[in-house]
Design a protein around this nucleic acid. Structure first.
Lengths: 251, 251
DNA sequence: CAGGAAAGTGAACAGCGTTTACGGTGAACA
DNA sequence: TGTTCACCGTAAACGCTGTTCACTTTCCTG
């Protein structure tokens, strides 16, 4: 049973988070200040210490909640594609990840940029995954592998140092080693690195030195990865037909 | 001829940069403050405005100089390998990039993390490249391709939207389209994304959810990319023989 | 109804970026 | 040689920040 106090407290926490998010969107990660949040709420800054031990704690809580929301966004995008079209589901989730990053650059920076000094991604028991985030892609890959049996490196082809760690991850996740080969985890990590790399480069603006619109590259990489995973379908929708070829030769 | 005033000013600028770098290393990007720098130098904060228009300008200057130093580090690592061993040179440069990132996490965060709002990577004439940084890898790849002719996608296999941008980049770099195919640039970008992705994930601490030491993965990815580039040599030195297998089953 | 936990306030401390007005000091120029 | 002026630095101030402390108010509980 939730007491009245608890409900009020919960509502206040939500209001704090909403105000913090507003400031994040408006002024970036460095623009989140306790005093500004309190001002928005018609309170004074020290009152916020009843809810968070410090600004850093508030930021950490924001990161966690954004992680959860990214996971939900990915799952929603995945579930919008028929369950038998695993390739389409993977593409949808990958595109959703990129979309979220580009539509929420400050938020993405908080979650996937350099963490504030002293931040620890709360290693609660659960599944030791990227906050239930990489797990979306991982389960898609495992399902895909079970169906398509796309080629993965054999155990003995994985360097020993890497193999040990993949084994550790596999057992600590409670995976069935007989069912899912280490090579599959190896492939997953490789795909995740490519996805993260491209999306992070784009979100952080490090891709303009060669491209001014990274979407075609993203789609090409996605197609390449998909091919690697035995997905042959033509990757249904998702990329607009290069509708913006203007503003190229501008000084 | 440089006047005495100019020499003094230059020395002060250097001292400012050194103090700023000290604070960056000690307290992270957010720990750089004009007042602390001035205090270190036995000055007052407003004096620094004679040298930089704002703190953001100082940070931007730091980013630029770090970019240059990364480029130099990569070139040095590359040049430490015989010029005929292009695969070895590529591996050395890639390893140097990772090493630099891990040895200079705050600096790496400034250069390759989310830029401060309002930062523009001074697009001076020169070569429109990542501050002469990606250019190291790009020229290595072109040399490698000229020698090995590893497979690259044909122009017509590159999606139109991406191809247009690669063409734009190629011409704006003054490259000879007849000599260097677009597919080579395509491959370069793909390799750069993988390298950036893995190194950034590691430097930002986003890889611990599956690995606690990303070096074996890095070496495996490097080997894979090298194979893709027609490099068959066994990738001479560079990774220690998995000497640290301790601290695995810790809580 | 009494006690106490919870929530919020106001003042204060130490720090920050930045602007302004002001003093020297040294170099250049008549 | 004397003057002028750009340059370098300072002190004070404004408004902002996170955080702590002592205090009051309010509401729930026993």
């Amino acid at each position: 049973m939730t007491t009245r106090r608890e409900r009020l407290r919960e509502a206040t926490v939500r209001e704090i988070q909403e105000a913090a998010r507003r400031h994040l969107r408006a002024h970036g990660p460095a623009g989140i200040s306790l005093r500004a949040i309190a001002r928005d709420m018609g309170m004074t800054a020290p009152a916020l210490y009843r809810y968070y031990a410090s600004l850093n704690d508030l930021l950490a809580a924001m990161i966690e909640s954004y992680k959860a929301e990214i996971g939900e966004a990915l799952e929603a995008a995945r579930d919008a594609v028929p369950a038998d079209d695993l390739g389409g589901r993977l593409a949808a989730a990958a595109r959703a990840f990129r979309r979220w990053a580009l539509d929420h650059r400050p938020e993405f920076t908080m979650v996937f940029g350099a963490p504030p000094p002293g931040y620890e991604p709360r290693a609660e028991g659960e599944i030791p995954s990227a906050g239930g985030l990489g797990v979306v892609f991982f389960t898609l890959l495992t399902d895909l592998w079970r169906r398509e049996r796309f080629p993965v490196p054999a155990d003995e082809d994985i360097p020993a140092g890497l193999r040990e760690q993949l084994e550790h991850f596999s057992t600590s996740c409670g995976l069935d080693r007989a069912d899912l080969p280490l090579g599959l985890i190896r492939v997953f990590v490789g795909c995740w690195v490519r996805l993260y790399g491209l999306v992070a480069m784009e979100a952080f603006g490090h891709v303009h030195f060669v491209l001014d619109d990274a979407e075609p590259l993203f789609e090409a990489e996605l197609a390449e990865v998909s091919a690697m995973l035995g997905i042959t379908r033509p990757l249904p929708p998702g990329h607009s037909p290069s509708a913006s070829a203007a503003q190229n030769a501008a000084s």
